[in-house]
Design a protein around this nucleic acid. Structure first.
Lengths: 242, 242
DNA sequence: AATTTGTATTTCCTATAAGAAACTTTTTAT
DNA sequence: ATAAAAAGTTTCTTATAGGAAATACAAATT
């Protein structure tokens, strides 16, 4: 019964603040920047590589790239000609940068080589070779990163350009009101409760309690925040994939 | 002293089997397929979405798309002409699908509109709107997936096309020899020891012991396997990002 | 070695892209 | 409402893409 009252109080607070909070959260996200390192309100985003990737897809030489693609499929100009419906001489001239193909020709090329057009501009696949990257973080030896609501311990900080960013987090927040508003960011997040218990507030669901061993996966663009509801501050593992 | 002997025995076994194991691991990976669902030797790969994404970036109408981009920047044909170095009449003909522009013209267009070429073909951004996906897995309530060496408990199985695949794993293996060879697959992996202790064998490093609270992030293309070294079988959290 | 086959490049001709100017439509100002 | 300005489209001419055939080069066969 007492639990019921508590939950209903939390729900009311959640609804009243939805609009104002969403506006403020943009400012709060800016404050997360620490010494040149972008930080999501939950934890850090280390090395957002999107901009760099986009820069890198610009090909230096279209002809060179197309020749590469043709040869990687072990095709002669004649075979490629039959597949693409473009004349051999045209393919030769394109590959040797003698002409600039029309978009229509590019479409034919892509279709004939079994590609989508953006793939023509993609960098070569990294290759099947293992690159051997590894980073071990001992218990308690992660990089500290405190905020007002969470006490983060960043893991695997020596590896840059990771697909995932893991961190342990001690949830100091005790009330939804400890947050200035919904926190949100790009990507998806997974969280596992390591010790204690938390109440999870998310923008489109009623709050839910998770205890040790429980986990949750969610789209991080949805407003979200955690509150400790156990005697001792809960500890969770958080993994972000931006 | 006794620990030292054990470690040195393991190291020797590791070195002797490197070449033969790498060959067999391809077959072992095939055996991981369970009821139509692809499984990495560590755990499952559910719904690899790469192919579908690539299909979706194909534009329907180039001219329409370019007009859209121009108007979204509030540019007249004249202004766009000045920025791109292409004649107004050319821009008009392109936008109205009367001609198919050369790649060189496309380059000028992209540069003038402040884009990279692939962005011309990109679908509109999904928007900052949260899509509200969430999946809660209670402690012990994940989907079981046993193998000979590990006992997996898949988490967040109701969400498809995830950027990460999390699962808890009880490590049954007790010796490196329990594995038929190195296991490897595309992507990156993060693991956190929840209980007990494990010895981590990886292709390019000496074996290392991790205990409760320790974590490791690594490129999964590198051969890898875990062995329990605690009295009770260790439990780890594993998160794969393919 | 010479000859044949396979592959790529160049040449010549046709089709079409691209630019400048003329024309048309739309928008703005009075 | 009309006139002027802005914006977009079409026409005509030049430049270049694209195709077929000829030529050149490399590899394989005799």
């Amino acid at each position: 019964m007492a639990d019921r009252k508590t939950v209903s109080d939390i729900e009311t607070a959640s609804k009243e603040k939805n609009d104002a909070q969403t506006k403020q959260s943009v400012v709060d996200e800016q404050q997360g920047v620490v010494s040149g390192q972008t930080v999501t309100p939950d934890g850090p985003i280390m090395n957002i590589q999107v901009g760099e990737n986009e820069k890198r897809v610009q090909p230096i030489q279209l002809g060179e790239r197309l020749k590469e693609l043709r040869l990687s499929q072990n095709l002669t100009l004649e075979e490629a000609s039959q597949r693409t419906g473009l004349a051999r001489s045209t393919l030769s001239k394109i590959e040797n940068e003698q002409i600039s193909p029309t978009f229509q020709a590019l479409q034919k090329l892509a279709a004939g080589l079994g590609l989508d057009i953006p793939q023509i501009f993609a960098p070569p696949e990294e290759g099947p070779e293992a690159n051997g990257r590894r980073d071990i973080t001992r218990d308690g030896a992660g990089k500290p990163h405190p905020t007002t609501t969470y006490e983060h311990e960043l893991l695997a900080v020596d590896i840059s350009r990771k697909k995932m960013m893991p961190f342990k987090c001690t949830v100091r927040a005790r009330r939804f009101e400890d947050f200035d508003g919904w926190v949100r960011h790009e990507g998806e997040e997974f969280l596992l409760v390591l010790t204690g218990a938390i109440a999870v507030y998310t923008e489109f669901y009623e709050p839910v309690t998770l205890k040790e061993g429980d986990s949750m996966y969610y789209d991080a663009r949805m407003g979200h925040c955690l509150v400790s509801v156990s005697d001792t501050d809960a500890q969770v593992l958080w993994v972000t994939a931006p």
